[in-house]
């Protein structure tokens, strides 16, 4: 029977029957998968420790046809993200990462770059001064990987260059990015952001280190957090359940 082996982050588990688990895993090579782990809760199970929530494991599964759960045959723990067990703010941020992975991605739709971004984010959530910026970068990584990254350089509607007017720029939550003056009327869910806020979002979405140098106390960063959060809520169709709990992790 063909098997698949890959790295996986455990993003949801449900206890079923006497000793089994149904888990949702975000894997590097296969995308999000739902698996049945028979006997995983037995005291001497070979999967013990490999299906702990938000743990990274080396897994082997037997894919099932149609909509049935895949069968998990091995799950060996590879990395435990220790900060999540030491600090409540880190834990809530970790849960938020899991919620986004679960809700934003489709089954069997691999996103290796998003997997790597999640792994790095979970690994470094213990740095309190950078935590909320790391979460923001992860939110933007989700949007980029799913093809939903807001336009930040030119008008999302017509492609024209966008000049700040009195320091204000229009941002369409539904249109997907900044809007020029001509396009700002018409599309629904348009908010005003400052040029400082736009610069903060650009820095957070860029691969370099500029995001580390953002002033954590600046209003631009705080508003960037709100705007990106609003985009995520718009994409999901509801506010993420963990988002209010991220308040404990604000810098």
């Amino acid at each position: 029977m063909p098997t698949s082996r890959t790295l996986a982050i455990v993003i949801r588990t449900i206890e079923v029957f006497e000793t089994s688990l149904v888990a949702t895993l975000f894997t590097r090579e296969l995308g999000k998968v739902g698996v049945l782990a028979k006997g995983a809760r037995r005291p001497k199970s070979s999967m013990q420790g490999g299906l702990d929530l938000l743990g990274l494991s080396d897994i082997v599964l037997i894919p099932k046809a149609s909509e049935a759960l895949d069968l998990l045959t091995e799950a060996a723990p590879v990395e435990r993200f220790a900060p999540l067990r030491r600090d409540l703010a880190s834990l809530y941020a970790g849960y938020y990462v899991a919620e986004l992975l679960n809700e934003l991605t489709d089954l069997h739709d691999p996103h290796p770059k998003l997997f790597d971004a999640a792994r790095i984010t979970l690994r470094h959530l213990g740095e309190p001064e950078l935590r909320s910026r790391r979460v923001l970068r992860f939110e933007l990584a989700c949007l980029r990987e799913l093809g939903l990254m807001p336009a930040l350089e030119s008008c999302a509607h017509c492609g024209a260059p966008v000049e700040p007017r009195g320091g204000t720029i229009w941002f369409g939550l539904a249109t997907g990015g900044i809007l020029c003056e001509a396009c700002r009327t018409g599309p629904p869910h348009v908010v005003a952001i400052t040029s400082g806020e736009l610069e903060a979002i650009r820095a957070l979405a860029s691969p370099g280190d500029a995001w580390r140098r953002l002033d954590p106390t600046s209003t631009g960063l705080a508003r960037a957090r709100e705007t990106v959060g609003a985009v995520i809520s718009h994409v999901l169709g509801h506010r993420p359940r963990l988002r209010p709990l991220l308040g404990v992790s604000t810098e």
Binding site: D52, L53, L54, G55, L84, R85, R86, D87, L88, L91
Partner: peptide
Amino acid sequence: PNLEGDGTALLVAN
């Protein structure tokens, strides 16, 4: 002794 149990202990300790 799993993440949710550790989180619960952390919450009580806090």
